[in-house]
Simulated assay, not measured.
Amino acid sequence: MKTPEWLNDEEQRLWRLMLAANRKVDRAIEESLNTGYDLTTPEFGVLVSLSEHPEKRMRLRELCAALNWDRSRTSHQITRMERRGLVDKQRCSGDGRGVLVALTKEGERRLKQAVPEHVQTVRELVFDRLSQEQAQAIHDFSLAVLGSDVEHLNIPKGKNNG
């Protein structure tokens, strides 16, 4: 194993700033969703993925790929959400081992209620604080970190998705 090259002072500062900023954004989003709409961030992610699918349902393995989660985490999350009435689990016809996850009316209702405040929180915490150049730099950095994994994630295409 290669001996690690320790981070220099500037790299350490940047790394810790990135972690702190990510935690701040995560906490604010979690608090907004939880307090106002009784949703967790993972639940919101599942509901968004399902709502964007043309049939409002997806195979479990597609959902795993879209969320970049492993099957176990996704299965447990879906089971909890099914108990709360946010999604339904169904067997795939013709595939006894396949599972379909469908958005329920309640899940769709809760998502529609939460989206405006979620967007406002993201805008205030992130986009209102960035110049176009900074946003492009973060975009490029994110693509570099994700590499080919980005193809499997549920990320809308845009003019900068290259």
Rank of each mutant, 00 (worst) to 15 (best):
A65C: 10
D70W: 13
D88I: 06
S93L: 08
W69L: 10
V99P: 05
I78K: 03
S75V: 08
A102V: 01
R83I: 11
D95W: 12
E62I: 07
K112R: 15
S72Q: 15
C92P: 04
S75T: 14
G107L: 02
E108V: 02
L86I: 00
Q90A: 14
C64Y: 09
D88T: 08
R84Q: 13
V101F: 09
A65R: 04
L100E: 04
C92A: 15
K105L: 07
L67E: 03
I78P: 00
S93W: 13
G94E: 03
I78T: 09
R109Q: 09
T74R: 01
L103Q: 04
C92D: 11
L86Q: 04
L86E: 05
I78E: 10
K105R: 11
L86V: 08
L100H: 09
C92H: 11
Q90S: 14
R109M: 07
V99H: 07
R61H: 13
L63T: 06
H76S: 14
A102I: 02
T104Q: 03
L111Y: 07
G96Q: 13
R110G: 05
S75C: 12
V99M: 03
V87C: 01
R71W: 13
V99A: 02
R91Y: 10
K112E: 07
Q90T: 10
D70G: 12
L103G: 03
R61M: 12
R109I: 05
M81I: 03
I78S: 04
C92V: 15
A65Y: 05
V101W: 01
R110V: 04
R61F: 13
M81P: 00
C64D: 09
S75P: 01
S75H: 10
D95L: 06
M81N: 03
H76C: 06
Q90D: 10
G107F: 05
W69H: 08
K89G: 06
D95G: 00
R97V: 09
Q77S: 11
Q90P: 10
R73V: 14
G96E: 14
L111C: 03
S93K: 11
